[in-house]
Amino acid sequence: MKNSVQNLQLPESIPVSLNVNGQQHNLSLQPWVSLLDTLREHLHLTGTKKGCDHGQCGACTVLVDGKRINSCLTMAVMKEGSEIVTIEGIAHGDTLHPLQQAFIEHDAFQCGYCTPGQICSAIGLMNEGKANTLDDVKELMSGNICRCGAYTHINEAIMQVKEQEAEAAILLKNTEASGLHEVSERDETSVPGAPAREAELVTEAEGGASHE
């Protein structure tokens, strides 16, 4: 596994501007720093997990421009200008995202390590709009390994939120048809697709300057 000597020069840092959870971060990063390590080690947003670092487990799933990706297999410098949403940007202040709430209700996790990736992935799945049945959900959530084996509960949580959304959509449609618009502000957090919003911003202080 020898690297040739020509590589001994370290890569030059490049200014990178990342929009994470609605907050602009102006960083100077070497191009070999993955988006995952940037989130965890540079921005102290440790909610995004490293489970394999090779795109084989899904723990590092984040939303980039509304789409779910493995943050371990992309370099941060490549995401200049993109809107990135991590698990820390999903809740609306103290109000949990419906999926977060459903995960708790259905006990859709045990150790919790895959959970942020599962939730981000589920939001991505709902944004895609391709999962119509439980079987679809199972296939389209198979990029997120849960070693504790909470799959059936994960699926129950997702199906519940999908149904809630479908009901909400019907309600909204009926309301619009009847000319009433006062529910237009209904549960913003459940609207799929909005990759960034004015969420509770997690800043450097969250990661803490000390280990306590």
Binding site: T46, A91, L96, Q100, P116, G208
Partner: peptide
């Protein structure tokens, strides 16, 4: 579910 639970490699 919010990513705030801290695991061994996540202490600054």
């Amino acid at each position: 579910v919010t990513g705030k639970a801290k695991y061994a490699a996540e202490f600054a």
